[in-house]
């Protein structure tokens, strides 16, 4: 049962990622990206990482994609389909992407493999476990990331402000 859910989610993920790249209008790209993010959240649920699945839906599908959608509508990009590169450059892009996948595949194929010892019931992805890790071992990076977010807020306001 679980593997069929995995196959269905993977097909949705790959197809929507391809549609992000090949869609004519940026608006369709954003919509496909939202579908892709939801299917990745489904993968997280399948991997028993419920906390990250919720955070992923809130942060990515909720905040980041709304920001993208807002900018696409603000700049009026959904009117005309944007021009693409010349044919040579497009073929070169497709070939280099495919070659990179081939290299990754071959390196994975030839690398040594081990086996994981899998437990009966996995609960490390729940809020309790991740929260304990986050506030014991990783409390300093957690605090520093709040400073990073503050600087990102200030930086984006300064950059997007109309200079008088």
């Amino acid at each position: 049962m679980a593997q069929y859910i995995f196959y269905a989610l993977s097909i949705v993920t790959i197809l929507s990622a391809l549609y992000v790249v090949f869609a004519k209008s940026p608006m369709y790209s954003v919509i496909a990206m939202i579908v892709c993010f939801f299917s990745i959240a489904g993968h997280y649920v399948l991997l028993n990482a419920q906390f990250l699945a919720i955070v992923h839906v809130i942060v990515y599908a909720g905040a980041i994609m709304v920001l993208f959608l807002f900018v696409v509508m603000l700049l009026n990009l959904n009117q005309e389909p944007d021009k693409s590169h010349g044919k040579l450059l497009r073929v070169a892009a497709a070939i280099s992407g495919g070659m990179l996948f081939l290299v990754l595949l071959l390196s994975l194929n030839t690398s040594e493999t081990g086996t994981f010892i899998l437990p009966e019931k996995s609960d490390i992805g729940l809020v309790e476990h991740v929260g304990k890790k986050l506030f014991n071992e990783y409390v300093l990076p957690f605090e520093i990331s709040s400073v990073l977010l503050l600087s990102a807020i200030i930086g984006s306001v300064v950059l997007a402000k109309k200079e008088s």
Partner: peptide, 27 residues
Amino acid sequence: SSLLFCIGVMGVLFRRNVIVILMCIEL
């Protein structure tokens, strides 16, 4: 995930719109 990463790389090389390039980096 390697397939998804390669789709993202291909999108960065393939598209000319900066917003779509940023989305491919997210991918």
